[in-house]
């Protein structure tokens, strides 16, 4: 299973417009193109996960994630906010890169945790934040994943 195969160009947004944490989460959720009620439920679930502890892992990266009934397969999205946003990250720095991971409560393929681990490893590669900043289109994001073995 490759990360590249789990992202789609339409779930990659290189210019997030939101200016605060809640709106960033909502904007990421919108990338999944769910119905309005499902978006609201998913936002609340992600927000509740954030309330347990921020998913901002430092170095400008956050990985909001949860299991939710509103999806029936593993869904991923990536958003970039070039100016950065306060996200209560571990290093207290602003976050510029957001990887959203949502899985149904039960998956036949059981990919959620391996994918969460892979995304965290990818994001923690010292070269990755810089390369993410330079991306010019969603296809380049997918190529970057591919180049890093994902």
């Amino acid at each position: 299973m490759k990360l590249r195969d789990l992202f789609r160009p339409e779930t990659v947004k290189l210019e997030l417009e939101s200016e605060d944490k809640d709106d960033i989460l909502k904007e990421l959720v919108e990338l999944l193109e769910l119905d309005e009620k499902s978006e609201a439920i998913l936002f609340k679930t992600l927000k509740r996960r954030e309330n347990l502890g921020s998913t901002g892992i430092g170095k400008g990266i956050a990985i909001p994630h949860c299991r939710s009934l509103v999806v029936n397969e593993l869904r991923l999205a990536y958003g970039r906010k070039s100016d950065g946003v306060a996200f209560d990250a571990i290093d207290e720095k602003e976050v510029r890169h957001f990887f959203l991971i949502v899985a149904p409560p039960l998956e036949v393929s059981n990919q959620y945790l391996p994918v969460l681990g892979k995304v965290a490893q990818f994001a923690k590669d010292p070269e990755v934040p810089g390369k993410l900043t330079e991306l010019e289109d969603p296809a380049a994001f997918l190529d970057l994943l591919e180049a890093h073995g994902g």
Binding site: I41, K44, R48, L52, T55, S68, L69, P105, K124
Partner: peptide, 26 residues
């Protein structure tokens, strides 16, 4: 149900979820 799923994942004494959450997200 979503909250129960989160709790169930974290309630396991030693699971992959717990390891990931503690290792990467403190």
């Amino acid at each position: 149900q979503d909250l129960r799923a989160q709790k169930r994942a974290l309630h396991q004494d030693s699971g992959e979820t717990v390891g990931l959450e503690e290792e990467h997200f403190n």
